[in-house]
Design a protein around this nucleic acid. Structure first.
Lengths: 228, 228
DNA sequence: ACATATTTTTAGATTTGTCTAAATTTTTAT
DNA sequence: ATAAAAATTTAGACAAATCTAAAAATATGT
């Protein structure tokens, strides 16, 4: 058994942010991501992305083909998962231990995810009793980079009538999350879809004893898990 | 009542580290600190300190007189206290909640102290039940920048025989802290000085039922508080 | 007091990460 | 197929934070 990685390569904050963004844009599945797409996501310029692509390619973290695009190497994927793991564990910590609301966690977790200490994140993981999902329902990669993908569907895709348990959100903007808080819709709640309005695709749903009418835009941003 | 500070000025990590170092070197009491002293402490070059001194003077955080030295302004002291507060609260968190040993906390706290979120540090403070001292016995500034200075003296300065409670360490190196752990000397322990060896100034001390012989170097790095 | 040593600053260079503007390559539309 | 549009890269510049080497100011010793 050869050691997997003898030298822990140091990455700057900027490098880590690029790796993370490429992962989120799908650069793991050997799919090539355009510099434009990365630039837009990161609110920077395509020329800056090109510069960084060369740098990360040097470090064997990405595959970069000029004019074609960028994808993550195995090492790049491992790095991305480690950053995402930290981000999501910190989010759980903020919500469970410090009573942050789920719309407040992202900004702070963006900073905390760059703290370099394996012991720290492992102890946080233990303190939280090894959570599998973050406050938005997204899976937390394990220390070994395993990633539980939960099967789930959009509330808008449910048969009518039927029901499921809320397990995540697609849109994680503060505006959407605050809307959910205000309407007492949270992870774990059982949601029953009663009727769909043909005119605007809005849904009449039931949560516990409460009946509410939600727009299609809401329904296409809430994930539920059904019995299967 | 005018607002104390309307604009939260953004400081880079480097700027924060300079402010903190100047504070620790005594640059609060309108004492001028030399660029050489700062450079040595920060393991950088005096010319780099000069550059930063100009930059911080621009931002009204330090008073800088060419060829004379650098001291903190009121705003600079406030900034320093805020960083030290964060550092020490994170140290307490690491020890109390994540079972770090006191020689492990410094390096991680150096990173965590730069996280920008007032809500985060206030919630950590509350989670820890508003501690007054960090794991090395150093006082934690309050949110308003108040600083409890505890009267304490070095173990080596105690009359013989007499006793005091261990309240802090002067040297915070990993080597010294590990030594203390190994010999089960910790904050809160009552230490009785029994005899001083005239030859090498080593001390015979008693902690609980244990009697041990400690060198002068140890005795000059342990703080105790006596009845007074 | 004055020569020498020390400290501090200046000037110019380097690295990282970014930008703009121009050049190049790829894609799209007719 | 080829001209126009879109995407991407290159070249050159900039700010932040650092460095080295040289110049300037201050401190020290006899």
């Amino acid at each position: 058994m050869a050691a997997r990685q003898l030298t822990i390569i140091f990455l700057t904050r900027a490098e880590e942010n690029y790796i993370k963004t490429i992962f989120h844009l799908g650069g793991n599945k050997s799919q090539l991501i355009s510099t434009n797409a990365i630039a837009e996501q990161m609110e920077t310029k395509p020329s800056s992305v090109t510069d960084m692509a060369k740098k990360l390619a040097e470090k064997k973290l990405v595959n970069y083909i000029r004019y074609q695009g960028i994808s993550l190497t195995g090492a790049g994927i491992k790095t991305a998962l480690s950053i995402i793991r930290k981000h999501r564990l910190w989010e759980v910590f903020l919500v469970k231990k410090l009573d942050f609301t789920w719309d407040e966690v992202h900004e702070v977790a963006e900073q905390l995810e760059h703290i370099k200490s394996e012991k720290l994140i492992d102890r946080i993981d233990a303190l939280l009793d090894y959570p599998k999902y973050d406050p938005h329902g997204d899976p937390i990669p394990t220390k070994n980079g395993e990633f539980l993908v939960r099967d789930k569907q959009l509330l808008s895709e449910l048969a009518i009538p039927s029901s499921g348990v809320c397990v995540g959100v697609k849109d994680t903007s503060a505006a959407f999350l605050k809307f959910l808080d205000k309407n007492q819709i949270a992870l774990g709640h059982e949601i029953t879809v009663m009727e769909k309005e043909v005119f605007d695709d809005s849904l009449k749903i039931k949560i516990g004893e409460r009946v509410l009418q939600i727009s299609n835009q809401i329904a296409t941003n809430l994930y539920v898990k059904t019995e299967s």
